[in-house]
């Protein structure tokens, strides 16, 4: 197994996620790009776990599980915020969000 293949895949996925977060206006698409970045990090963790002989085996996989749980929590709260924004402003474009105080 050549570890460089999954490592480069993960690096390219992370770059795509960064590009999506900066490029997209729709908040739901921004969340999708964040998921791409989190997956790239998980892939790095898993690959490092299989290639590096650590003192504690399988630690990378345990960390990947933790990151998946955190991502689930993140997407839940994020979507609640996006839906609330849509209810208040009738838009989900992130550059239409006013930075001054919103009167609910």
């Amino acid at each position: 197994m050549r570890p460089v293949i999954p490592y480069v895949t993960a690096a390219l996925l992370f770059g795509l996620g960064v590009y999506g977060v900066l490029r997209r206006r729709n908040a739901v698409l921004v969340l999708m790009s964040v998921e791409l970045m989190l997956n790239a990090v998980n892939l790095i963790l898993i690959t490092a776990d299989t290639t590096v002989r650590a003192a504690l085996p399988q630690t990378g996989q345990v960390f990947a599980l933790f990151v998946i749980v955190i991502a689930a929590a993140e997407v839940g709260v994020g979507l609640a915020i996006v839906l609330q924004l849509y209810r208040l402003r009738a838009t989900v474009a992130v550059d239409d969000v006013p930075l001054e105080k919103v009167d609910a």
């Binding site: 460089v4 490592y7 480069v8 690096a11 390219l12 996925l13 992370f14 770059g15 795509l16 996620g17 960064v18 590009y19 999506g20 900066l22 490029r23």
Partner: peptide, 16 residues
Amino acid sequence: ALLVGGGAGLGLAALL
């Protein structure tokens, strides 16, 4: 976005 995203992705790939 293209600059930052491409830079991050290709930079990390070159490093790895």
